[in-house]
């Protein structure tokens, strides 16, 4: 059974420590980590606010991690997702996977990201000098799930 680590936090996280944790298994030959950051494309972003649904968030993330562990042979799965007010450049979230070989680690990490985008109860709001706006979900994020079904 894969070691699942789910963390929902307002605080920043230590990417190095999370990666090291994924390297713990003796037969782990591959570790993949992906980090999402607050992007400021137009130079006008003051900060991002991330709202979530306490309770459902942890359940949804655990289910997504369990699904990945059921589909690929993984030693460990990590999902960390922050909420609250985040400055441009701040880390928002990460996923990490550990397996014997790289294919499973890459594919599972990609699967985790696709499901996180549209099946985990987080909502992003961008605050600029002009005001605040909720980030709209993209059709392409929903379509991305098709390749896993």
């Amino acid at each position: 059974m894969a070691d699942l680590r789910i963390l929902v936090t307002a605080d920043d996280f230590d990417l190095g420590a999370e990666a090291a944790r994924l390297e713990a298994g003796a037969d782990t030959g591959a570790v993949v980590t992906f980090t999402g950051r607050v992007r400021d494309v137009d130079g006008g972003l003051r900060h991002m606010e991330i709202e979530h649904y306490p309770g459902m968030t942890e359940v949804a993330l655990t289910r997504i991690a369990e699904e990945a562990a059921a589909r690929w042979s993984l030693a460990a799965v990590t999902i960390v997702h922050r909420h609250g007010r985040l400055a441009p450049g701040a880390r928002i979230m990460m996923v990490g996977t550990a397996s014997r070989h790289r294919e499973a680690a890459f594919e599972a990490a990609s699967f985790l990201m696709d499901y996180l985008k549209s099946r985990a109860p987080f909502w992003k709001k961008e605050v600029t000098a002009e005001g605040a706006e909720w980030v709209a979900a993209k059709d392409s994020d929903e379509d991305a799930l098709d390749r896993w079904t």
Partner: peptide, 28 residues
């Protein structure tokens, strides 16, 4: 969501305790 499970809008409330309404999610 009904008791923290994403469901269609025509789902019966049954014995649920909690219903949540929200826009499409934008995690990641």
């Amino acid at each position: 969501a009904l008791d923290q499970e994403l469901v269609p809008i025509d789902t019966p409330l049954g014995t649920a305790r909690e219903v949540a309404f929200f826009p499409p999610m934008t995690g990641g």
